[in-house]
Every structure is written in structure tokens, then in C-alpha cells.
Amino acid sequence: MNDANRAHAGLYPAPAIVVGGLTPGDGPLRGLAADLDAIADLAIDRDRLTRLHAARRVALARLGRSSLTLGDRWIDWAPVGLALALALVTSWTLLSDNAQSLDADLLADALPFDAYLDAGFQRAVGGDAVELLEN
């Protein structure tokens, strides 16, 4: 018996009718796809929402947890962590760069650095400068 005869005799399943990439045998997937479409359209009716909640409970029960932890969702937080780490490193680099540039400015300044070690000068720049200049 060739394949055509087998199919005709019902020994093979009925030919697949492809609709939207799914075949009639893909019932659960079809339901999931419909749910996802509904989510995408923001048109979730109560039944679908209930099914989604139930599916979530089942999935979490299989994981043995009552909710997803941060560790389970690390992939969601990785970009945030990366951005924070880069921001920290950039800030640290800029601060360090500014601090290190200070010596060049100080040594190239018109005043000798002795001035900045002078007690009277220190008092003057430390808050007394305005009174000093006014007197």
C-alpha cells in the first residue's frame, strides 16, 4: 500500500490544514497564540485572564515558588546593572580626572604654591576673604 492509499484508508491523520502557521493538532499552542494576540491587542477578557493566571500559578508551582525572585529575573535587571556600573565607572573616572588635573592648574598658577600653604591665605580663602577685601 502506497502512501496515498494509506491516507485514503485513514491510516494517516488527516492532511494538516495550515492556518496562521498552526495545524489543527496544535490546540494548546493555538490557545496560547490567541491569548498572546489578545494581550497584544490589550483585549483580555475575563476567561483568558483567568487562564493566564492559572498557567502562571502552575508554572510557579512547578518551580516550587510562590513568585519570581530577582534572581529568576536577572536577565531583566542585567541592562539596569550594566547602566549603573557604567555610570559609576564614568563618574569615578571624571572625578579622578578632575582631581588629578588640579595639580597642573595649581603648579601653573600665578601664585606660588607656598601661598596655598600660608596660614593667613588659608584663613582668607576659607571664608574671611570677603571681610578681608572689604577692610
Partner: peptide, 16 residues
């Protein structure tokens, strides 16, 4: 302030 320090020089506590 710079000018006053340069005029009075180091140890210029009194001037400043």
C-alpha cells in the same frame, strides 16, 4: 586676594 598676597609675600598673616 592674589594681588595682596603677592604684595605682602609669604608669612603674610597680618596683611591678609
Amino acid at each position: 586676594l592674589r594681588q595682596r598676597w603677592l604684595e605682602s609675600g609669604p608669612g603674610a598673616d597680618e596683611a591678609l
